[in-house]
Deep mutational scan, measured.
Amino acid sequence: EETYEVDGEEQLKKVEKMLRDRNLDVEVEIHNGKFVIRAK
């Protein structure tokens, strides 16, 4: 499992696309105004 923490939606979209391109399962949560992306 990998976890990424990003600020802002633009970064979120980039990271999310990169992970989905690797066929990973992606979950996004918001913690303290930051996006936390978990990939399995």
Rank of each mutant, 00 (worst) to 15 (best):
E29G: 05
E16P: 01
R20I: 05
D21S: 07
E16H: 04
K40P: 03
F35P: 15
E2C: 15
D7N: 06
E10G: 03
K14R: 10
E10K: 04
V28Q: 01
E16G: 02
E5L: 12
L19T: 01
M18S: 06
R20T: 04
V28I: 13
V6L: 09
K14I: 14
V6W: 07
H31F: 10
L19D: 03
E9N: 06
L24Y: 11
R22E: 04
V28Y: 07
E1A: 09
E29K: 08
Y4W: 13
N23H: 12
R22L: 10
E9D: 09
L19C: 13
I30P: 03
Y4A: 02
L19M: 03
V6R: 03
D7K: 05
L24G: 01
D7C: 15
T3N: 08
G33H: 07
V28H: 01
K13V: 08
E5F: 12
Q11W: 13
K17H: 06
I37D: 13
A39D: 03
H31G: 05
L24K: 05
I37Q: 06
E29H: 10
E16T: 14
K17E: 08
N32L: 01
R20A: 07
D21M: 08
K34P: 00
D21V: 04
A39C: 15
I30W: 14
E10D: 11
I30D: 10
E10R: 03
Y4P: 03
E27A: 09
K14E: 11
V15H: 02
K14Y: 10
D7E: 13
G8N: 15
L12C: 15
E29F: 12
I37N: 04
E1W: 15
R22T: 04
D7G: 04
V6H: 02
I30G: 06
K40M: 09
Y4R: 02
V28W: 09
G33R: 00
I30A: 09
G33K: 00
R22W: 12
T3I: 14
M18L: 08
M18Q: 08
E27K: 10
T3W: 15
E29R: 10
K34F: 04
E1V: 13
E29L: 10
T3D: 03
M18P: 02
K14D: 07
D25M: 12
D7R: 07
T3C: 15
L12I: 04
E29Q: 08
I37V: 14
E2K: 07
D25T: 12
R20M: 08
Q11S: 10
E5V: 14
K40I: 13
Q11E: 14
R20L: 09
H31Y: 09
L12N: 02
R20G: 03
D7V: 11
E29C: 15
F35V: 15
E2W: 14
T3Q: 10
L19Y: 03
V6K: 04
Y4E: 02
N23D: 07
E5A: 05
R22Y: 08
G33T: 00
I37K: 05
K40V: 12
M18C: 15
E2H: 11
V36N: 01
K13N: 06
K17G: 04
A39N: 01
E29P: 00
L19V: 02
E27I: 14
E29A: 10
D7H: 10
D25N: 11
V36C: 14
I30H: 08
H31N: 08
K40Y: 06
N32E: 11
E16V: 15
Y4F: 10
R22I: 05
A39I: 15
Q11T: 10
F35Q: 14
D25W: 13
A39F: 09
A39G: 09
K13T: 05
E29V: 12
V26F: 15
H31W: 09
E29W: 11
V28E: 00
D7W: 14
I30S: 09
D21K: 03
V26L: 08
E9L: 14
T3H: 10
E29S: 12
K17T: 03
E29T: 13
E1P: 11
M18E: 07
V6E: 01
D7I: 12
Q11D: 12
E9M: 12
T3Y: 14
L24D: 01
K34L: 01
R38K: 15
I37P: 13
D25S: 12
H31A: 08
